[in-house]
Nucleic acid binder design. Sequence first.
RNA 1: GCCCGAGUGGCGGAAUGGUAGACGCAGGGGAUUCAAAAUCCCCCGCCGCAAGGCGUGCCGGUUCGAGUCCGGCCUCGGGUACCA
Length: 851
Amino acid sequence: MSRYSAAEIEPKWQQAWEQAGTFTAHRDPAKPKYYVLEMFPYPSGNLHIGHVRNYTMGDVVARHKLATGHAVLHPMGWDAFGLPAENAAMEKKIHPGAWTYANIANMKAQFSKLGLSLDWSREFATCDPEYYGQQQAMFIDFMERGLVYRKNAVVNWDPVDMTVLANEQVEDGKGWRSGATVERRELTQWFFKISDYSDDLLGALDGLDNWPDKVKLMQRNWIGKSRGLQFSFSLVDGPAGHDRVEVYTTRPDTLLGASFVGVSPDHPLARHLEKDNPDLAAFNAECRKMGTAEEEMEKAEKRGFDTGLRVRHPFDTAWELPVYVANFILMEYGTGAIFGCPAHDARDLEFARKYDLPVVSTFAPTSDSGHTLPEDGGEAYVPPKTDTVSYVRGFAGETEQTGNEAIDAAIAFCEANAVGHGVTKFRLRDWGLSRQRYWGCPIPVIHCDACGVVPEKKENLPVKLPEDVTFERPGNPLNWHPTWRDVACPKCGKPAQRETDTMDTFVDSSWYYARFTAPHAATPTVAEDAAYWMNVDQYIGGVEHAILHLLYSRFFARAMYACGHLPASAIEPFDALFTQGMVTHEIYLTRDENGRPMYHLPSEVTNGTLADGRQVEIIPSAKMSKSKKNVVDPEAIIAQYGADTARWFVLSDSPPERDVEWTASGAEAASKHLARVWRIVTEAATAPDQGTGDDALLREMHKAIHDVTLGIESFGFNTSVARLYAFTNALQKSDAGRAARVTAARTLAQLMSPMTPHLAEELWNRLGGEGLIANAPWPTADPAMLIDDEITLPIQINGKRRAEITVPRDMAKDEIEKRVMASDAVQRAMADGARPKKLIVVPGRIVNVVF
RNA sequence: GCCCGAGUGGCGGAAUGGUAGACGCAGGGGAUUCAAAAUCCCCCGCCGCAAGGCGUGCCGGUUCGAGUCCGGCCUCGGGUACCA
């Protein structure tokens, strides 16, 4: 008997699959199709163990579906545009394209060692002109459908580097390279009209039955449909052209608790007033010295500037409220102006206390629950709108009503009294796709002095990125290129200039799933292929993409349908979604002479010490990230133990949806187990002809088939693995005859094949299995073999387990009761004369005797 | 700040409202061996000599019965529109 050697068998079977074209997807009308897709990776340079986990999970699904007779599409590509390539260009003086394609080559080699059932003939990178050219064609289609427009929007501006920064590049309000205080700057930018679909994107979530509830809930909240009141305050002696301030509120029922009016520093009124008011101009300028991130805005101290202007309350013209410019009001949402009701909004309360403004409750809890009113120093009272509360300063509806009822009544009251009108608004903003960067898909339009903004002719696509660029100078290299911008206007032929903005990389990843159905076609999609393969039956990726990527993809599918690039049935492109957890690891660091952190790889650290004896600081586990160096290199594990061990290991123990803390100790154990399976399975072939445990072993086998299959189908891979351990133990201890043991061993190989495909092929082959195990029909459990004749019932006394009885599984309830009453435990409990009050028999489950 | 999750032995975790800790790791003991490696067998939540008691982040509640359902917290993680 030979020993298990991953190094020998893995390349052999990888070659066999390739030669047989086992994983090449074909349209086959005779089979049900199955499209399984994992979120494609950013080519950062190396696979990390998180990739191994993610793609192994998808592979288990794909291989299982292949074995259950599906035509499987399981493709792979590269999300290849983005910031890190430009950072590498600046730091390492290497062209972003060269860096990216080198990374792809490296990662593809690592991928191929994992034995994933991928159809590599469909591979593409989003930075391939063949791909982004089709993306440009769709952009032009979207323009023609009115789904694209330009408007001003703010960006993070680094005044030293003279460049736009990503939110990630702003640290504590400073540019990460220059250290300069970041400013907000307005630029004219391109937008997709995702807001046209707000209601549809919201409503359609209800039909996504196989999406996690948490993702649907996050998207619902993000889209943020709200019913509110839009009305205006009239200004007392307002400046010319500003006689009113239009506000939007989702809580019109709190109008009698109004304390002040706040406007955004970018509100037209604020901009008007700052011209003649240097103090206000300074305040606004200070507000604009902040990044654009919502998180930064919200966490910043609430500050305001009293304009001195006053407005009249719409219900009482004698009641005047002050007008503040406030740093926490977004121009992008609502009207850029609010009325503050400190009693029922935490931000407003913080603001009111700071500027000594009145705090007046309009409603309170219905019963005195120890709640302290905000006017008495308590917190703002913001119950869910579905809670019934008591209105102390109500003006519409009942005294006791829910927030929603009060809001509806308030809107009706205001409409009847011509104070304002009910409006439905969405939190979702249009998708700004402009990036002032090189390494992205060029926006295919031309600016002509005579014709304005003109789309490039489709026959001139792709608009390719120029190769000869330098990153010496900050800013967008496309702007500094000597000739690239210069082009003839497609309309009038006169000299004109190309747009130099490139697209957000979320655009690239918003339709790649559709492109995989016809990856090298001369149009974005091909109707026949899209009709056959769409939708993605199972999409798998990190929960960090729960909102943006998935929402943008849902929008894109709708826009592509509108332009004829996808069938109507594909507007929800992902039938089922699974969000897997991340692989985390501790972070190790030392500090340089300036106290700045220097990170160290886990492989450099032993027991908290570096090779040179220095102690490291340990930061608790976080998402693996290259910059923090808390990454584990899967290649070392594959080299030492083989791909099957790495795959088995990442599927073991931790539930797929949960984050998993990486520890090195398990790899050894996984490897040992595979060697043990090898031994036990090969021994089965030489077992004695006759044995005594055939039936018992085959029952175990059918239970294993049932449980392992259920685990795979429900993304409980860790429980499938646990069940396979148990089945392996049963096979080892079995004294069944050879025929039964070989049957069990072949089934074990099949059940393991989605997880450890190379080992499974080799064992299958050695046990005389026909063809490739990858194509062998998945075993089915015989229901009759899953049911035991006898069952063990625990006996509880007052809810605590005290004994158990073993009875035939179909024993009548009253017979069970008799036996329970006769049992020692119950007799003992009755010894002092106590009599049971209640006897609960849950058939097949448990018995509870209550005294 | 706001939205969404997660918390069970030394560790990873299992458990349709029904025996908490399956399965595995680490640890302990034993067999085999000249010795070792490899392999195999047994033990293994906490307190207690025991009887028994206590145990699923914390505090309450519903139930014959709660890790699981409800209310209120705490801690950690993800997202927060230019990281992908």
